[in-house]
Amino acid sequence: MSNQLCPLIFNQPRFGLFPSVLRLVQIFVACLLVLAYSANVATAALLPPDLKITTRTNALDTNAFANGLSFDEANSDAAIGNATHTGSMVQTIGGTSTTTSVDNITISSGVNPLEGMLTDIGDGWEIHSNVSGNYAGSNAETPENFYDLFFGLENLSATDSIQVTITLDFDNHVNSSGADAFAASEIILYDGPSIASNELFFSDIESDTVVGNRFNSGNRTGDFGGPLDDTGIFQHVVTLNPGDILDFHIFHLIEGGAFAAGSSYSASLDALISFDATNNTTPPTPISEPAILFLISIGLVGFMFRRRIKN
């Protein structure tokens, strides 16, 4: 701003205090800009400190296949003939991911199970699995392969409730072709630690060239073979009252087979389980930005006239 543009401010002696005021305004504006910038810088948001989200040890459940996030090596079956099974499991805590890889029914790298307690919003677990095969002079089969995730939500607060959103982002695909082939993949979220608990969500699809296809039910669709896809996002919201502990189980089964010349199959699942949470307490009402600026303006005007009286 030049003297020519603002002669009333800079050229009249009785307003000689304005340069000092303008410097103060500049300082206040700079501080506000710094605060606004800091508020908008992307930082990792922590889960509420009283919320505990952790993998569970499920020793009391006789129907349980494993603990934590795991591939069930003991109950899964090896591929037969010209067939393959590969998979991976990923655990993310505080933005750092740990991966375990599966080849057929063997853990090829990493640990099994993956266990830990989540710390940040967006932390979670992933399951990825793929099976395929084709008849090559003999049957090709990837028998049942099992993945499990047991996790618990716990509210450690003695006074506050916490609302938790469980998000399951899934891509489920199956395909079969030829005279005799099938492929099936399912993922289920239970509201308890065992497969005897209530189902909150399931994606259960099967492509079968002999008995017909299924899509999320026991009923056949009337189609035989070909690709089926089930993709989406499922969210389950729970409120944990002080001291509440809730357990959940995610179960995944994938399989397929080809039993006649020219037959083939494939199936895959990609699933991400993540969390968001908020305390159900009423925060103090914040002062709006216009109100803050108004208060600063009043302070500056008061300071200006105080200086004028002294002069």
Rank of each mutant, 00 (worst) to 15 (best):
E126C: 02
M89Y: 08
V111F: 05
I93E: 10
W125A: 01
S109M: 12
T100K: 01
T106R: 11
S101R: 09
W125K: 06
Q91W: 00
T100F: 03
S97M: 10
T119R: 13
I107M: 04
T119G: 05
M117I: 07
I105A: 04
T99P: 04
G122P: 09
M117Y: 00
V90W: 02
S108K: 10
V102C: 11
I121H: 09
T100R: 05
N112E: 04
E115M: 14
S97T: 11
T119V: 13
G110N: 08
I121R: 14
T96V: 15
T119N: 07
I105L: 12
E115S: 14
D123Y: 06
V111M: 05
E115L: 07
G116R: 02
S97P: 05
T92F: 03
S97K: 02
T96E: 13
V90I: 13
I93F: 08
G110M: 06
M117T: 13
G110K: 07
I107V: 11
G124I: 03
P113T: 01
N104R: 08
S108L: 11
M117W: 02
L118T: 04
W125D: 03
I121V: 14
T119Q: 15
D120I: 02
D123R: 13
P113K: 02
I105G: 04
P113R: 01
E115R: 13
E126F: 01
S97N: 10
P113G: 07
D120R: 15
T100S: 12
I93A: 12
M89K: 11
I105E: 06
